Simulated assay, not measured.
Amino acid sequence: MNVKHFRVRVSGEHLQNDQNAINQFLNEVTVQKTATNFIAGMIDYWSVLVFYEPKILKPRESKESEKVSVLNYDELSQEEKNTLSSLKSWRTEKSSKLGLPQYMICHNSELMTIAKIRPHSIDELKRIKGFGENKISRYGNDIISLLQAS
């Protein structure tokens, strides 16, 4: 078990900063026990001992922030631009067929990322920003087939 000591000064100018520091710390650990004591003197303050354990980080599913995205057309090679053109044609056909706007099928940034990364499987497609379970179930097989054909 770990121990951390805080001094929470009761004077108005320091009180908020000291409270913010202890609150931030408490959010980052698992508290086992606390002990407090008021100390009167030249500067009155609360002495706070926090007995804690570090939080155990749980393994997590892939988050949107961990996904890959290409936002600049200039990052693409000529071959990747050709693939992007094929993907845009597929999106146009799909949107007409479904009666949806093209951006509802895939955004340009998603298509650029697909062209750059060229995923070979549904699992690789999941790494692309914007591709969750719904989009993959609707369009994933089409996209992978199109990439394999070109």
Rank of each mutant, 00 (worst) to 15 (best):
G140F: 15
N82E: 05
L15H: 05
N2G: 03
R138E: 09
E53F: 11
R91L: 01
L49W: 06
G99H: 06
E61R: 08
Y103W: 14
W90Y: 15
K97E: 13
L26W: 14
C106M: 10
N2W: 14
S109F: 15
P59F: 00
S150F: 08
E13G: 06
K129Q: 09
K116H: 01
I56R: 03
L125F: 11
C106F: 10
N37K: 10
G130R: 09
S137D: 04
E28W: 10
F38H: 10
I22F: 13
E110N: 04
L125Q: 03
H120Q: 14
G130Y: 14
E124C: 14
K94T: 03
K58V: 12
S109Q: 14
K4Q: 06
V48P: 01
M1L: 07
K97R: 14
Q24R: 15
D44S: 15
N23Q: 10
N134R: 09
F6I: 07
L98Q: 13
F131Q: 00
L15N: 09
Y73W: 04
N82P: 01
F25K: 07
N2P: 07
E66P: 06
Y52H: 05
N108H: 13
I114T: 02
L26T: 07
K116I: 04
W46E: 13
L111Q: 02
A21W: 10
V68H: 03
K4T: 01
K88E: 02
K94R: 12
V29W: 09
N17H: 12
H120F: 13
F38A: 15
R118A: 09
L98V: 12
L125A: 11
N72A: 13
L125S: 11
V68K: 01
Y45M: 04
K94Y: 06
I105T: 01
E93C: 03
S95R: 03
P59W: 00
P59C: 02
S145V: 05
T34N: 08
L15T: 00
E28R: 15
R9C: 10
I144A: 02
N134A: 14
T34I: 13
S77C: 08
R91I: 05
V10G: 05
M42C: 08
N23Y: 12
